[in-house]
């Protein structure tokens, strides 16, 4: 059964180059690109106006951006090798709140994820400090208990944050893994990449429980809806797909141009209908809303 999502609004030319990362907050969305600036757009108004620009913060461009779920904190990682931390004040303005740059060389830190409470930042590394292969993606479970990393050699690792131990080394994807994401209740882990299929794993047992096939190109991004009912994925050829987890079927496909769709994110559910945002190589951010009914 398919589902209808309507285009709400498109911010054309939101950035002058590829949008590599989107990170939502309850009322806004932060976006980062190959430019040095983070933009903050209001997601409560119909035309998604620009609220703030954090200019010139990573001169060589920004490859990753993350927000904490429950607090007003964000982290950005730039091609020059720095990770910067940002906080939203009571007035709604974002300000620099320190940076992590101790002896980091460009590329030491690659993917980043913030814990829901904003207290922890997980990062993957290019030189593969975790078992030797480039850590291309990382996620922290919403309850803070697990970290998952996806690697260029196809490995997926799940770590227990309390013990610091590797709990699972997940098989199944031989090719580079470009995105990993825990479901909101931490029961499932979704992982995908160059193999084009999305693998679903049971976090507790480490068993692979499903394969979602349909993308015709590398899968670059994954995100779970707030309720965990749907999974949003984006591919290198600019296609977004929405999968219903219960039936493991693709219920909607949207095209965001033919350029890489680097990032696809659900917005935190605030109204009746769910919304998501897409950003990628066409320099635009598009917002979609579930059709009423």
């Amino acid at each position: 059964m398919s589902k209808q999502y309507l285009t709400l609004h498109t911010l054309s030319g939101a950035h002058p180059s590829d949008i590599f990362a989107l990170a939502p907050t309850p009322k806004s969305i932060l976006s980062a690109s190959g430019s040095s600036t983070i933009h903050v757009h209001d997601t409560t108004q119909a035309d998604f106006p620009l609220l703030q620009s954090l200019e010139g913060i990573h001169p060589l461009g920004i490859h990753h951006l993350a927000t904490a779920r429950d607090v007003r904190r964000a982290a950005s990682a730039g091609f020059e090798g720095k990770v910067k931390i940002w906080s939203e004040g009571e007035d709604g303005a974002w300000k620099a709140n320190g940076e992590i740059s101790d002896q980091l060389k460009p590329g030491d830190v690659w993917a980043i994820a913030l814990s829901a409470d904003g207290k922890y930042l997980a990062s993957s590394s290019i030189n593969g400090k975790i078992n030797g292969s480039f850590g291309m993606c990382i996620d922290l479970s919403r309850d803070g208990r697990f970290t998952a990393s996806g690697h260029e050699n196809g490995s997926i690792y799940v770590f227990d944050n309390d013990t610091g131990r590797l709990t699972h080394s997940l098989a199944g994807l031989v090719k580079p893994v470009r995105s990993v994401a825990f479901s909101p209740n931490t029961t499932l882990l979704a992982a995908a990449g160059d193999s084009r299929t999305i693998a679903l794993y049971d976090v507790k047992s480490g068993e692979q429980i499903a394969n979602l096939a349909g993308h015709g190109s590398w899968v670059l991004t994954l995100d779970w809806s707030d309720t965990g009912e749907y999974l949003l994925s984006g591919s290198h050829e600019g296609k977004a797909r929405i999968w219903r987890i219960e039936t493991r079927q693709c219920v909607a496909t949207h095209s965001h141009g033919d350029k890489p769709l680097w990032t696809a994110k659900w917005l935190p559910k605030s109204t009746r209908s769910e919304m998501f945002a897409l950003g990628g190589g066409n320099n635009a951010i598009s917002f979609y809303r579930e059709a009423a009914g």
Partner: peptide, 21 residues
């Protein structure tokens, strides 16, 4: 290859290579 340099495409392609490795 700078943000306001004369070769924005070069900058973008370098970044894409790094992103995709």
């Amino acid at each position: 290859c700078g943000e306001h340099g004369s070769e924005p495409t070069w900058r973008a392609e370098l970044q894409r290579l790094l992103m995709l490795n």
